[in-house]
Design a binder for these strands. Structure first.
Lengths: 192, 192
DNA sequence: GTCTATACCTTGATAGAC
DNA sequence: GTCTATCAAGGTATAGAC
């Protein structure tokens, strides 16, 4: 289905999709143009360079993340529900054509990216990690979940698992994502 | 440093390195040629198509893996040591210029790969997963380690963590790989 | 086995008409 | 805002001399 909204929005939606399906070096302006029924040059009007497009994708994802975590309603949700929301982001990517997460996609292409994109994605991953660490910490303190080790280490391990499992799911099957999620919850002493 | 051995071997070494650093769509025959001080056409002599080169890289990695796990000496090692060997593969990739693992690299490019490469990497990831699951299972039975849940789920989660953490380490720093490994050991009731 | 030379395609990007 | 037309650069791949 084609996305609604302005051309700029449609380009962004499709580019995000292709980036997470094919990698940054795996899709082209031509690819976007033909699928949207417009011309190459029209895309360059909205996003002068591919770098601009890449930055826009990262910034939009950042915005969505911040919007959720800084929403006062969400901050008071049980830790378990906040964790489930976080996992749902990955689940959503899996459901939309086996997309890998944005961080995973850009991480493997990392050394081919312009510096501006590198620092944008660095920033996002740092913020995500801090948020997860704080969440795990407060969950452990309140007794909502349990684990050994530091919340920092645990958060990095958890994010790595989710990132990696979206990739393994491509090679081995969707169920391998669910196996990982199941194990993550078991390892936090949570039923799933 | 340039690799030793025949030209074919040098090409394979460099291509493997570039594949895991830049992604399958991030390096070219030209890239290989200039760095090896030979010409484009010389590479095509040894590997007629990029697909042939990709297959060769996967098959060589497979071979190394099988050689180790089917070595009778290694099969009787303590579970902990076998696990440490497995982690060392990832550590080695990290040390050699922040390479991601072969599976991670090819997973994000997966839908741009020729079918032959897809099935080759599918096969490898299946074999690795089975080996890890068996290792964890026997370790739990012998009391060498402990974890909740099925050894299948745990193995997928463990491999995903390692795969993902090599990628996160690019964005966040090498220490984030070590944090993940530390947590993996803690979660198996092993000191590290 | 390696070279020169080249064919052919795709890529990101721009100029200027409408 | 979108089009046509075009560009230079880089990509995979081949033919044929040495």
């Amino acid at each position: 289905m084609a996305s609604r909204g302005t051309t700029k929005r449609k380009i962004l939606d499709l580019a995000e999709n292709l980036l997470q399906r094919l990698g940054y070096n795996g899709f082209s302006y031509h690819h976007l143009a033909t699928e949207l029924g417009i011309k190459n040059a029209a895309i360059h009007y909205h996003f002068p360079s591919k770098e601009d497009l890449g930055i826009a994708i990262i910034e939009r994802t950042k915005g969505r993340f911040y919007k959720w975590i800084y929403n006062p309603e969400n901050r008071v949700l049980p830790v378990r529900q906040q964790l489930e929301w976080f996992v749902k982001i990955y689940q959503y990517n899996l459901n939309r054509g086996h997309r890998v997460c944005l961080i995973g996609a850009l991480a493997t292409d990392y050394y081919t990216l312009p510096a501006s994109m590198q620092s944008a994605i660095d920033h996002l991953s740092n913020d995500i990690q801090k948020w997860v660490a704080r969440l795990l910490d407060s969950g452990r303190q309140s007794g909502e979940l349990a684990f050994e080790g530091s919340s920092q280490d645990k958060s990095v391990c958890l994010i790595s698992s989710l990132t990696g499992s979206l990739q393994l799911a491509r090679l081995m099957g969707e169920e391998y994502f669910h196996k990982t999620v199941k194990q993550i919850f078991v390892d936090l002493n949570l039923t799933y």
